[in-house]
């Protein structure tokens, strides 16, 4: 394809990204570096601040979500579970956002519907983990649309296995952030991940690979223009996709372990659907 077409594709995906993802990297980095003035995030660093912040999270929940009754889990042990349920609600909403983004990739909705489902099932957790990176630094992560900053130490202090959930994402994110991608680069990279022709059970691989190839060309050109001094950035970025698959596999195993050990835990139906028979 001509360079002009590749640039148009890049602009289109960036616009879709801005439309469907409410917290951009630009905004997240401004919050993390304290450039938002009075709107500094609420910091959760211990159980006391979690309980204070929890009310804040619950107030901001989306209208069509059921509220978890506060009395159903009581005591300190239940704090983790309650927090985990909030994370699930946000993740389900994020899956919806990623689906809308996927549908905006030219040619995606013309693919076989079952293949679209397969691409989302296998791609969405990878996309969500990549999207966490801009929200993170070595000390913690923004949650709740950037209104809260939760410290890494606090997440590590939760009881097992909750304390094991985020640490691999921090390790990945800190390394990923060294690449210094911006939102327009991210949009293309997310599309490349979604259009992976090697997902198990795909019926018609060819058109998916053709779409991915075009987006890959667009990404390569974008990185050359946007990061002229960053050598081998395209290759380095593609290598991240291997690490990502391992993180997702470990994450899914951890959730499956949680399902067995936490009798009070209910997995969100959409997330259950995605994780069932996945790796």
């Amino acid at each position: 394809p001509e360079a002009a077409d590749l640039r148009a594709l890049s602009r289109h995906l960036y616009e879709a990204y801005l439309k469907y993802f409410p917290l951009t990297k630009a905004k997240a980095r401004a919050i993390l570096s304290g450039k938002t003035g009075d709107n500094a995030p609420f910091v959760i660093h211990d159980m006391k601040s979690l309980m204070e912040g929890e009310q804040f999270i619950n107030c901001k929940q989306l209208p069509n979500q059921e509220h978890q009754p506060q009395t159903s889990h009581s005591g300190m042990d239940a704090v983790e579970l309650r927090f985990f349920q909030s994370c699930q609600s946000r993740s389900a909403e994020a899956v919806r956002e990623v689906t809308e983004f996927a549908k905006s990739i030219p040619g995606f909705i013309d693919l076989d519907l079952n293949d679209q489902v397969t691409l989302l099932k296998y791609g969405v957790i990878e996309v969500l983990i990549i999207m966490m990176a801009p929200l993170m630094n070595k000390d913690g992560t923004l949650i709740s649309y950037g209104q809260i900053f939760m410290t890494r130490e606090f997440l590590k202090s939760l009881r097992k296995p909750f304390c094991q959930m985020m640490e691999p994402k921090f390790e990945f994110s800190v390394k990923f952030n060294v690449l210094e991608l911006d939102d327009s680069d991210m949009a293309l990279f997310l599309a490349v991940i979604i259009l992976s022709g090697d997902r198990p059970g795909l019926m018609n691989v060819k058109p998916i690979e053709q779409l991915q190839e075009t987006v890959l060309h667009s990404l390569e050109l974008q990185l050359k223009l946007n990061h002229p001094d960053s050598l081998q950035l395209f290759a380095k970025l593609l290598q991240k996709m291997t690490d990502l698959r391992q993180i997702v596999t470990d994450h899914v195993h951890l959730i499956q372990l949680l399902k067995k050990t936490e009798i009070d835990m209910c997995l969100h139906p959409l997330l259950q659907e995605i994780m069932k028979d996945l790796y």
């Binding site: 899956v95 919806r96 689906t99 079952n114 679209q116 989302l120 139906p269 959409l270 659907e273």
Partner: peptide, 20 residues
């Protein structure tokens, strides 16, 4: 198809919010 009911819905219902 039943196994991925919500994903199918998300893909087919344009932008109308599916009951998550």
């Amino acid at each position: 198809k039943e196994k991925h009911k919500i994903l199918h819905q998300l893909l087919q219902n344009s932008t109308s919010p599916v009951d998550l």
